[in-house]
Design a binder for these strands. Structure first.
Lengths: 137, 137
DNA sequence: GTATCTGCAAATTCTTTGCAGACAG
DNA sequence: CTGTCTGCAAAGAATTTGCAGATAC
């Protein structure tokens, strides 16, 4: 079993209680929290943590590939510890963000490279709609 | 030939010089400008226009479906007068945003609806990479 | 004439920065 | 011990808001 300490050390990051808490929180949720939400979630257990540290930590995690940052159009960034390429779907009613899987993502990338003559490095595929829970209310 | 005045009137918006200027600018460019860029572009010809008006106008255009707002992760919103669904590709070097076309977008939507049980209303498909111009420099 | 729109300034929200002290390795 | 990290407060950037006067219709 690989520990968070090992993950951080592997990336050349110093292992601090704040970083462990942030990475543990993010990898234990599917809710794609914002920096503020991470901060508030950690307050009870880490009363001295600061929002600036959350931002700085998320920035090092991004740079080292430990998390990905999402821009789904809600005026803030959301974070995902699942760094494998995968699309998201956002409920336009409740704002929740969900992961899902699609087929043929790599052939889509090839199609894009052909069409645009870009060297394609990544993508953010975001769908919008009404989630099952909101639909049934 | 359909005029901007007609387009605005059709949406129930009052026809003002500011709105005409903003819509004309947006529909005449492929550059996906931000609010600030629109504002600066219009300054020479509309010296009294204000940034707040640009924001408010873009908001009514969004609401009425005259423009779409993009969130490509650069910390601001970019606007596109092409409201037909189409993907974008962003150069991670120069920041420029380009339109392109892909096949099978509607079957992709169906696949998403099946997978997620959402009512799918729209999507933002954003790819990232190095554009031909930056690659050759 | 009336509701809507504009422009200004102030406020708000999200994020970044500078710096001094703390801590990991 | 040294470089990195944290937490604070202040700064910065993007966007929104309130309001009085102007304008479309």
């Amino acid at each position: 079993m690989i520990t968070i300490t090992e993950v951080l050390r592997e990336k050349g990051l110093k292992v601090t209680p704040q970083r462990i808490a942030i990475y543990a929180m993010l990898s234990g949720t599917k809710s794609h929290p914002s920096a503020e939400e991470i901060y508030k979630a950690l307050m009870p257990t880490n009363p001295t943590i600061s929002l600036a540290t959350v931002y700085k930590t998320l920035d090092s995690f991004k740079t080292t590939g430990l998390v990905q940052e999402l821009s789904v159009g809600n005026g803030r960034s959301n974070y995902d510890a699942n760094v494998l390429p995968h699309p998201h779907i956002v409920c336009t009613n409740c704002g929740k963000i969900f992961d899902f899987e699609i087929q043929g993502l790599s052939s889509l990338r090839n199609q894009v490279a052909d069409q645009t003559d870009f060297i394609v490095e990544g993508e953010q595929l975001t769908f919008y709609g009404i989630c099952p829970a909101c639909r049934h209310n």
